[in-house]
Amino acid sequence: MDRRLFLIASVAAGGIPRAALAAGAEKKEAGGGNYVPIQTLMGTTLRGNGRRGVLSVDCGLEIPDAALRTRAEQSAPRLRAAYLQTVQAYAAGLGPTALPNAEYIASALQRQTDAVLGRPGARLLLGGIVAN
């Protein structure tokens, strides 16, 4: 059977658009309702061979308070700028053979979070740290 005729017949019968609409309506937000995702943060490092490398940090915020979550979503560019400044400064000082310190990065980013939002209540969650 010709595929074009099959597609035309199924669209005319209403089969494909209904299935597409039903699949789109079931889309779930990643991380739940209290989670605010942050784009991947990157900083430049130096490798042992003298070439440049990348320090990549994946993170997000868990904020149970709705008012603070709204403030965090509105302040996302300021949060990202503060995070980038912290990660880039840390990556620039990272030695060629040194491994990144996850505890230090998490505490530094948490301090930036509290400073930008103006009060504690948002918890920084680290997804992954990759030094390449």
Rank of each mutant, 00 (worst) to 15 (best):
M1K: 15
M1F: 15
D2S: 14
R3T: 11
R3G: 03
R3V: 14
L5N: 13
L5H: 15
F6R: 14
F6Q: 12
L7H: 13
L7T: 10
A9H: 06
V11R: 10
A12Y: 01
A13H: 05
G14C: 07
G15W: 14
G15E: 13
I16L: 15
R18E: 03
R18I: 13
A19Y: 09
A23M: 05
A25W: 08
E26Y: 11
K27V: 07
K28P: 00
E29G: 04
E29P: 05
E29V: 06
A30V: 05
G31R: 12
G31M: 00
G32F: 06
G33V: 01
G33F: 06
Y35W: 12
Y35E: 02
V36A: 15
V36D: 12
P37E: 06
I38V: 12
I38T: 09
I38P: 10
I38S: 09
Q39P: 04
Q39S: 08
T40H: 14
L41A: 04
M42T: 13
G43E: 04
G43L: 00
G43M: 00
T44P: 00
T44Y: 03
T44F: 09
T44V: 11
T45W: 06
L46I: 11
G48M: 13
N49G: 14
N49R: 15
G50E: 02
G50F: 13
R51E: 08
G53R: 02
V54I: 13
V54G: 10
V54H: 13
L55W: 15
L55Q: 02
S56P: 01
V57D: 00
C59P: 04
G60S: 08
L61K: 02
I63H: 12
P64Q: 04
P64T: 01
D65F: 10
A66E: 06
A66H: 03
A66M: 04
A67F: 13
L68D: 09
R71V: 11
E73P: 06
E73D: 10
Q74A: 14
S75W: 08
S75C: 04
P77Q: 05
L79K: 12
L79V: 14
L79M: 06
A81T: 08
A81V: 10
A81E: 10
A82Q: 07
Y83L: 03
L84I: 03
Q85Y: 06
Q85M: 07
V87G: 12
V87E: 03
Q88F: 09
Q88R: 15
Q88E: 15
A89R: 15
Y90P: 04
G93K: 15
G93C: 07
G93I: 08
L94D: 05
L94K: 12
G95Q: 06
G95C: 02
P96Q: 00
T97M: 05
A98R: 07
L99P: 00
L99G: 07
P100N: 02
P100Q: 06
N101L: 01
A102C: 00
E103C: 00
E103W: 03
I105Y: 00
A106P: 01
A108H: 05
A108Y: 01
Q110H: 00
Q110I: 00
R111A: 13
Q112T: 03
D114M: 08
A115C: 01
A115N: 05
A115S: 07
R119K: 12
R119P: 02
G121V: 09
A122E: 07
R123M: 11
L124M: 09
L126D: 00
L126I: 04
G127C: 14
G127Q: 07
I129R: 04
I129A: 03
V130I: 04
A131Y: 01
